[in-house]
C-alpha cells in the first residue's frame, strides 16, 4: 500500500476515479466508465464523499473522526484501506 503522510493529498487517480462515481444515499455505487457497481457502508460513503470533494488526507480524517467518533489513527487507517479497495474495484 502507498505510504501517505498526514499532510499529503489523496493520490490524484483515486480522486479522479471517485469523482466519476455515482454514489446513491442507499450506498449503491456505480461507475459510468466501467459499468461496475458495488455497495458500501456509511463509512465507505463518507470516504467517497470526501474524495469527491477533493479533500486531502488530513481533512478527510478530521471529517471521519467527527462523523464516527473514532480516533485519528483509526480514521486514517480506514481511509487508506478503503481508498485502496475502491481503486482496485473500479479502476
Amino acid at each position: 500500500m502507498e505510504n501517505l503522510s498526514i499532510a499529503q493529498p489523496p493520490h490524484p487517480p483515486i480522486v479522479s476515479l471517485s469523482q466519476r462515481l455515482t454514489l446513491c444515499d442507499s450506498g449503491f455505487v456505480f461507475d459510468p466508465v466501467t459499468g461496475n457497481s458495488s455497495t458500501v457502508n456509511p463509512t465507505g460513503m463518507a470516504i467517497i464523499r470526501q474524495l469527491q470533494q477533493n479533500s486531502n488526507l488530513k481533512q478527510a480524517v478530521t471529517a471521519l473522526q467527527k462523523n464516527f467518533k473514532v480516533q485519528s489513527r483509526v480514521a486514517e487507517r480506514d481511509f487508506i484501506e478503503f481508498t485502496n479497495l475502491l481503486w482496485n474495484h473500479f479502476r
Binding site: 466508465v33 466501467t34 459499468g35 461496475n36
Partner: peptide
C-alpha cells in the same frame, strides 16, 4: 456504449449496462 453484466452460454449479452467512456 455497453458492458455485458451477464452472458449466455455463447457469450452473448443477457444483461447489459450503458456506460460512457
Amino acid at each position: 456504449m455497453m458492458k455485458k453484466r451477464a452472458i449466455t452460454a455463447k457469450g452473448k449479452a443477457w444483461v447489459g449496462i450503458a456506460i460512457h467512456d
